[in-house]
Design a protein around this nucleic acid. Structure first.
Lengths: 148, 148
DNA sequence: TCCAGTAATCAAAATCATTATTATATAATA
DNA sequence: TATTATATAATAATGATTTTGATTACTGGA
C-alpha cells in the first residue's frame, strides 16, 4: 500500500503537483476500497472519517486530478453519478464490467477479452484504439433463478 | 419514413399511448438525424423548429417513452449528457461505437462482434447477458496522421 | 526570520442536465 | 353533454458537479 502511494506521489511530482494530506487521505480510501466502484459522494463520506475537515469540492478536484494522471478511471454506468476506479498498475486497458439489472451489483472482469475484436476494428475501420469500455447488462450469478 | 412512423404509432397504441403531434415531431427529428447521436437538448432545439410551442420536459418524456418501447437507445458516453439513438428495426442488440478523442466524432459499428466473448462471459461468470455496450476510444480514420 | 508568490483548501453560490409539479388543454368514453 | 383519463407547457425543484472568493499552507529567496 505504502509503495503505491509512493508511486502516485512521484507521478504527482512529475506533473508538479503535491501529495497533500487531503489527497493522500483520498487515495488511501481508494486503495482500501479497490474492489468497489465508489461515487464522489461515497469517497467523500469515507475520506471524512479520516479527515473530517475535508470538503466535497476538494474530493472532486482530487478525483479529477487522479483521473488526469490515469491513476483512476472515471466511469459512468448511466445511473447519473460518475464512479471512480483505481487502475491496476501497469494496466493499459480499462477492465470490463458486469452490471446486474436485478441487484445493481457491478462485478469486474480483469482479462482482456477483446484482443481479436480490436484487431478487426483497427484494420476494418482504420481506427487507432486507445482504450475501450465494455459493459454487459444482465443477471449476475447471485441473482440467477435457483433451480431446486 | 412514413412507414416507420406508422409502426411506432402501432407500438405506442399497443402499449396504450397515443402518437400526439409533439411525439410525432420528435420522432421525425430522430428519423431525419438517424446517423447522429443527439442529446435531449439537441432534439429539443430541432423539434422546436417544427413545433415551436413544445416544451423541453415533453421532449424528455417522449424520449423516455421511446426508450421504454425500445424505439431508441439511451446512451451515455460519459460526457455528462444522455444521447438518443434510433434503433435499427429488428436489431436486438445495442450497436457499438467508435468515439474519436481528436474530433469527437461518434461512428457506429453495426456488426455484432461479441458473439464469442458473450459465450465466455455467460459460462465463466454465470452471468445471463441481456445487452452489452461496447465503446472504443481512439483516433478515427479522419484524424489519422497523414503520412506524406 | 520575514516576505512575496504560488498552490491548495474550504465553504458557498452557481450551473447544468434532468425530473417533478401544477394547472390547463385535449381526447376518449359513458 | 358530462365525466374521466392523458398529455401538455411552464415552471419549480433536484442532485451532481463546477466555479468562485476568501483564506491558509508551502517555497524560495532577501
Amino acid at each position: 500500500m505504502e509503495k503505491r502511494i509512493q508511486r502516485v506521489k512521484e507521478q504527482l511530482h512529475a506533473a508538479s503537483y503535491k501529495l497533500t494530506p487531503q489527497r493522500e487521505a483520498t487515495l488511501r480510501v481508494l486503495l482500501e476500497r479497490e474492489e468497489d466502484h465508489l461515487s464522489a459522494e461515497d469517497v467523500y463520506l469515507l475520506v471524512k472519517e479520516k479527515a473530517p475537515e475535508i470538503g466535497l469540492a476538494t474530493v472532486y478536484r482530487t478525483l479529477e486530478l487522479l483521473t488526469e494522471l490515469k491513476v483512476v478511471d472515471k466511469i459512468n454506468f448511466g445511473d447519473g453519478v460518475s464512479r471512480y476506479d483505481l487502475r491496476k498498475e501497469g494496466a493499459k486497458h480499462f477492465h470490463h464490467h458486469l452490471v446486474c439489472i436485478e441487484c445493481g451489483a457491478v462485478d469486474e472482469i480483469q482479462e482482456d477479452l477483446l484482443g481479436d475484436v480490436e484487431t478487426v476494428v483497427e484494420s476494418q475501420y482504420n481506427f487507432s484504439i486507445q482504450d475501450h469500455r465494455l459493459t454487459f447488462h444482465g443477471i449476475c450469478y447471485r441473482c440467477q433463478p435457483k433451480k431446486d
